[in-house]
Design a protein around this nucleic acid. Structure first.
Lengths: 118, 118
DNA sequence: CCCAGGGATCGACGGTTGTCAATATCCGAC
DNA sequence: GTCGGATATTGACAACCGTCGATCCCTGGG
């Protein structure tokens, strides 16, 4: 519908068998991956996932990581802002839990954009 | 025989239903994710995967990204060092191709370590 | 109202990163 | 051997990031 003649299509010059990721999608994907690309944050996600009930408060996470409380709070904020964790404040404590399917859809998008066509 | 009684086991106090990611595994996973957490590198992987034959040389990748040749070369080196791309120099040209299964196993490891137990 | 304690924010510091221009290296053609 | 073109490397610079100590905020209990 959009393209009138295949001969004028620039994509016909080089064998781009599939549309590559556009800049906006790449920026969005990279932003989420940046939130994951840190040892402390990966361990935080793993620790929370290993907890019974799937949630944990900051006081439970500081000791296993060997990091200060402000640093742990910072990492948790990054993960929440990236859409990977929820933050639920109950009383004095703040409970963090994984957002179901967030990591799965991320992994799926990553593999989908980088699967060879041939 | 370190722990004599289960009652003395510190892991029995908190409900760690599964062993969380250890520090070494977190560092290794983060190193690979850091290589992916960049828009230019994501687009490079996508561009290479979209090429017929699954490989591309630097001269094919500079223009679509709008980056200088040294910068593209640098990003490709990062991806090769991370074990995501192969570099095959044929004559004057250097052809880069995805390592099959590298991204899949990465995605699998990511999801495996962060799947809630409950 | 005041206190105690869990958590968030601020300010600062060292280290890392993405980018480019300039240059070096390598290979095929002549 | 010399030249041209495709990549790689170097050096430099600005921006960003992880970490901490200090401090502030907020909630529940007395």
């Amino acid at each position: 519908m959009a393209t009138t003649l295949p001969l004028d299509d620039v994509t016909a010059r080089r064998p781009a068998l599939r549309e590559p990721m556009d800049a906006a999608a790449a920026v969005a994907l990279a932003r989420t991956l940046k939130a994951l690309a840190d040892p402390a944050r990966l361990r935080l996600l793993s620790l929370i996932a290993a907890q019974e009930g799937g949630e944990a408060c900051v006081c439970d996470l500081t000791a296993p990581l060997g990091l200060s409380q402000p640093t742990v709070s910072h990492h948790l904020k990054v993960l929440v802002d990236a859409g990977l964790l929820t933050r639920d404040k109950r009383g004095v404590w703040a409970f963090f839990a994984l957002i179901p399917g967030a990591l799965d859809s991320l992994a799926e998008a990553l593999v989908r954009h980088t699967t060879p066509v041939a």
